[in-house]
């Protein structure tokens, strides 16, 4: 819109291309791959929460649906991961479509409650159906092979996810600059005003919700294949909170913010892991302080401080 987006994309690509020089071992690669997965996930969620202004505290439910769809279909029905992934996305999209209309009639805390409830129900189903899902102890997942190329090992995954991140960022930017995206942003400003100028509010909310649900499902599938092990926690309430926190900490309606938010909150538990029991306290305190001092999120706040517009 205002500025060309290519310098940003180029810088990100360059950064991702050079990053391996600073990664000493498979563990650091692992952390970065998890960051990349989360970054795409959070970008998707940001379309809903940041751009369209609709809170979701149940997003991990969709991630869990995708993750367990591929896991169950590849393990129990011998499906190839790709159609399994598509099935998961279709399932998540369908569920989102079914509940979107009644859910988005709700406002504020009622919307919060409904999305939270939806996510928790999905998590409970996953935890209970242990014949299929292995229950709370989790289940192993096979690795992913794409047309004869086995995607295994942290380095290959890094390459794959890095390309996927740049592509996702580019797609999201395009989408938000399209007429569709402008209509979606209008929702955040004022729904009534959008309605007055002829935006079909309901339809756009549903569309964004379904889109982010499907994206979440696909990323869930990828997580499952990457980690090779799944637990119901992937669909749980705390994971939902984590994802929303990444959106908010990075910056609402800021796609680069989503990447930063995902990076910080994925690394934080790793950095805090050696605190000998103080992890929880430190994590909580950091959340509180970030929200108090940067209520708009890191990237928008810093951008404003350094005198540049978004």
């Amino acid at each position: 819109m205002r500025r060309s987006r290519y310098p940003g994309l180029l810088a990100l690509s360059l950064f991702l291309a050079l990053l391996p020089l600073a990664l000493p071992n498979a563990y650091t690669y692992d952390v970065v791959v998890r960051i990349l997965i989360n970054a795409i996930l959070v970008m998707g969620l940001n379309l809903l929460v940041g751009f369209a202004g609709q809170i979701s505290l149940g997003h991990a439910g969709f991630v869990g649906m995708g993750a367990y769809s591929t896991a169950v279909l590849t393990t129990h029905a011998n499906w190839h991961p790709l159609p399994a992934m598509a099935a998961g996305a279709a399932l998540a999209g369908f569920l989102a479509l079914m509940v979107a209309r009644p859910i988005f009639r709700l406002k504020g805390q009622y919307l919060t409650m409904a999305t939270l409830g939806l996510g928790i129900i999905i998590a409970i189903v996953i935890g209970n159906e242990s014949a299929w899902t292995g229950g709370p102890d989790g289940m192993p997942v096979s690795s992913l092979s794409l047309v004869g190329f086995e995607l295994s090992g942290e380095k290959r995954w890094y390459g794959f996810m890095a390309v996927l991140l740049v592509f996702s960022l580019w797609s999201c930017q395009n989408l938000m600059d399209s007429p569709f995206g402008r209509a979606v942003r209008a929702l955040h400003g004022s729904e009534v005003a959008s309605q007055v100028v002829g935006v079909n509010v309901g339809r756009y909310k549903v569309a964004v919700f379904v889109l982010t649900a499907m994206l979440a499902s696909v990323m869930g599938s990828l997580t499952a294949h990457y980690v090779g092990f799944l637990t119901p926690g992937v669909a749980g309430f705390f994971h939902s909170i984590e994802l929303v926190t990444m959106v908010v900490v990075g910056g609402m309606a800021s796609l680069y913010g989503s990447i930063v938010g995902a990076a910080l909150l994925t690394m934080l538990p790793q950095l805090l892991a050696t605190l000998e029991g103080w992890e929880t306290v430190a994590f909580g305190a950091i959340l509180v302080f970030t929200m108090i001092f940067m209520p708009r999120g890191l990237v928008p706040t810093l951008a404003a401080r350094f005198g540049r517009t978004r």
Partner: peptide, 20 residues
């Protein structure tokens, strides 16, 4: 003046601190 989501995150942060 923080919005609803930020306040939710703050209270969750508080709960983590108290529990920890």
């Amino acid at each position: 003046g923080a919005d609803v989501v930020s306040l939710i995150i703050i209270t969750i942060g508080v709960s983590l601190v108290v529990r920890g």
